[in-house]
Simulated scan of single mutants.
Amino acid sequence: MTAVAPMMLKNMQEICEAFGKSRKTIIKWRNEGAPIFKDGGVYGAELNAVARWLVERG
């Protein structure tokens, strides 16, 4: 297994751009259990964790 360095996405725009999705979709994913956090009004996520979540959910 190859180790991959974590890549933090620091705001909603970075998350949307990384996955090519709209803000609405990212919020939907979060509500469905994606590892996307919200600190105050700022969203964030670790790219590999969200990608893994997408693969696991099918």
Score class of each variant (00 low, 15 high):
residue 1 M to D: 06
residue 1 M to Y: 02
residue 2 T to L: 07
residue 2 T to E: 02
residue 2 T to A: 07
residue 5 A to I: 13
residue 5 A to C: 03
residue 6 P to F: 00
residue 6 P to Q: 01
residue 6 P to W: 01
residue 6 P to A: 04
residue 7 M to Y: 06
residue 7 M to T: 15
residue 8 M to Q: 11
residue 8 M to C: 00
residue 8 M to G: 00
residue 8 M to I: 15
residue 8 M to P: 03
residue 9 L to Q: 02
residue 9 L to V: 06
residue 9 L to W: 06
residue 11 N to Q: 05
residue 11 N to G: 02
residue 11 N to P: 05
residue 11 N to L: 04
residue 11 N to M: 04
residue 12 M to G: 01
residue 13 Q to S: 12
residue 13 Q to W: 04
residue 13 Q to V: 11
residue 13 Q to D: 15
residue 13 Q to K: 14
residue 14 E to F: 07
residue 14 E to P: 02
residue 15 I to R: 03
residue 15 I to E: 04
residue 15 I to W: 03
residue 16 C to P: 02
residue 16 C to K: 12
residue 16 C to D: 02
residue 17 E to I: 00
residue 18 A to L: 05
residue 18 A to M: 07
residue 19 F to Q: 05
residue 19 F to I: 04
residue 20 G to H: 10
residue 21 K to L: 09
residue 21 K to R: 15
residue 21 K to C: 09
residue 21 K to V: 14
residue 21 K to I: 09
residue 22 S to E: 08
residue 22 S to C: 04
residue 23 R to K: 14
residue 23 R to W: 03
residue 24 K to M: 09
residue 24 K to D: 02
residue 24 K to L: 06
residue 24 K to Y: 11
residue 25 T to W: 11
residue 25 T to D: 01
residue 26 I to L: 12
residue 26 I to Y: 09
residue 26 I to R: 08
residue 27 I to N: 04
residue 27 I to S: 01
residue 27 I to W: 01
residue 27 I to F: 07
residue 28 K to F: 07
residue 28 K to W: 08
residue 28 K to I: 00
residue 29 W to I: 08
residue 31 N to E: 13
residue 31 N to V: 00
residue 31 N to D: 10
residue 31 N to Q: 14
residue 32 E to K: 14
residue 32 E to T: 05
residue 33 G to K: 10
residue 33 G to E: 02
residue 34 A to G: 06
residue 34 A to V: 10
residue 34 A to Q: 09
residue 35 P to N: 08
residue 36 I to C: 02
residue 36 I to V: 14
residue 37 F to D: 11
residue 37 F to L: 08
residue 39 D to E: 15
residue 39 D to K: 09
residue 39 D to Y: 08
residue 40 G to Y: 10
residue 40 G to Q: 08
residue 42 V to T: 14
residue 42 V to L: 02
residue 43 Y to A: 01
residue 43 Y to K: 01
residue 43 Y to W: 12
residue 43 Y to D: 02
residue 44 G to V: 09
residue 44 G to E: 06
residue 44 G to C: 01
residue 45 A to H: 11
residue 45 A to D: 10
residue 46 E to D: 11
residue 46 E to A: 00
residue 46 E to N: 07
residue 47 L to R: 11
residue 47 L to T: 05
residue 47 L to Y: 15
residue 47 L to H: 06
residue 48 N to D: 04
residue 48 N to H: 15
residue 48 N to I: 13
residue 48 N to T: 13
residue 48 N to R: 13
residue 50 V to I: 13
residue 50 V to Q: 07
residue 51 A to N: 10
residue 52 R to Q: 14
residue 52 R to I: 11
residue 52 R to V: 09
residue 52 R to E: 10
residue 52 R to G: 10
residue 53 W to I: 11
residue 53 W to G: 04
residue 53 W to H: 10
residue 53 W to R: 12
residue 54 L to I: 15
residue 54 L to T: 12
residue 55 V to E: 11
residue 55 V to L: 07
residue 55 V to D: 06
residue 56 E to H: 13
residue 56 E to A: 14
residue 57 R to N: 09
residue 57 R to K: 14
residue 58 G to V: 13
residue 58 G to N: 13
residue 58 G to Q: 13
residue 58 G to M: 07
residue 58 G to E: 14
residue 58 G to I: 13
residue 58 G to A: 11
